[in-house]
């Protein structure tokens, strides 16, 4: 398998076509999302609002509410897809994602402490979530570090620490007022409600930089997939490359989490779907990004329209992503056995 890929690497046109098709699908979905909403605005008015021809509430709804939300779903989805791809490649495990090293639970703990203990503002919540997630990731990394970090150990330590934090979170929620607790739980479910241009632009800028970094790291990443020794023999400095990849992967998820709360499963599913439709042997970044964006956009559209009142997007991604990934892995395992 691996040998074949090395021969084919320069002639891979399929991923390019797949990415182009995905981009079209994303554009179509984005237009649909801009056109529809519980506040009825005609297609003509939407176009004129986008070109600056409307004022007042219609302008606000299209340009200040829907557009940043659509942009956010695309950018955040791409970031999650790439983040998952990096982790799955790094840990050589299709079930790996930043959540597995405790990031999501850690950021939830941070957010809960800000909401419940400090009684803080939205900005403090974002800061708390980032700090909590990062601290957990660092703790997991350090705890798993013994003469280098080995993928499996990282996963197990991550599961352990996540479980402690999950218990802590349950307990914090238990101690809180109902309204506050529900707000915290909605944040944890991952919601893009009320995303503003502020969040999108800052998040987008961070994500763009991180995606570029990830692109630069994609060559060592592929070589690390072949094993530490093989990578080292090709001139990759194993430890720094791995650390850099972890940092990029966590930072991508962190940025999204800060803006919207943890949106589950996209980072887990996107690289797997991408690998299957692009028919690449290993994990590739670009298709994962496109699939992530499309998934996030679609999930958010469903979340806004499926129930009488909108649901957090994270709930839809859990149901869809969990179901799909389970089915995929399961049919594959079934075929093999």
């Amino acid at each position: 398998m691996l040998r074949r890929r090395r021969f084919a690497v320069r002639l891979e046109w399929r991923p390019v076509v797949v990415c182009a098709v995905l981009a079209l699908a994303i554009a179509g979905m984005a237009v649909l999302a801009l056109m529809t909403g519980s506040y009825r605005i005609g297609a003509g008015q939407v176009v004129s609002a986008l070109t600056g021809g409307e004022t007042g509430l219609v302008h606000d709804i299209v340009v200040e509410w829907r557009l940043p939300r659509v942009t956010a779903t695309v950018v955040f989805g791409a970031a999650l897809g790439v983040s998952g791809a990096v982790f799955q490649s790094l840990l050589r495990n299709p079930l790996a994602d930043p959540g597995i090293i405790g990031f999501s639970q850690g950021s939830y703990t941070g957010a809960l402490i800000v909401i419940l203990v400090v009684n803080g503002t939205y900005l403090q919540l974002v800061g708390g979530a980032l700090l909590g997630g990062m601290a957990t990731a660092v703790a997991v990394y350090l705890l798993a570090h013994r003469r280098g970090v080995q993928g499996f150990r990282l996963i197990v330590v991550g599961i352990g620490l996540s479980a402690i934090l999950r218990s802590l979170n349950t307990w914090l929620i238990l101690e809180a007022d109902l309204e506050v607790a529900i707000a915290a739980a909605a944040w944890e479910a991952g919601s893009l409600n009320g995303v503003s241009w502020n969040q999108v632009l800052i998040g987008g800028a961070c994500i763009t930089m991180l995606l570029l970094l990830a692109g630069m790291l994609s060559r060592p990443m592929r070589q690390l997939e072949l094993g530490d020794d093989a990578a080292a023999s090709q001139g990759v400095r194993v430890a720094p490359a791995r650390l850099a990849l972890i940092v990029v992967g966590v930072a991508l998820t962190a940025t999204v989490t800060a803006a919207s709360g943890p949106i589950a499963f996209i980072s887990l599913v996107a690289p797997q779907i991408a690998r299957r439709i692009a028919r690449t042997a290993g994990i590739t970044l670009a298709p994962a990004a496109f699939v992530g964006a499309l998934l996030c956009l679609t999930a958010d559209y469903i979340a806004q329209h499926i129930a009488p009142t909108p649901l957090p997007v994270g709930i839809i991604t859990v149901i869809l992503g969990g179901g799909y990934l389970g089915w995929l892995l399961f049919t594959e395992a079934r075929r093999r056995l």
Partner: peptide
Amino acid sequence: NLGSSGDQVDMEKLAG
């Protein structure tokens, strides 16, 4: 019904 309170309020429905 506009959904649960806080940031889960259905803004477009509210505007409508």
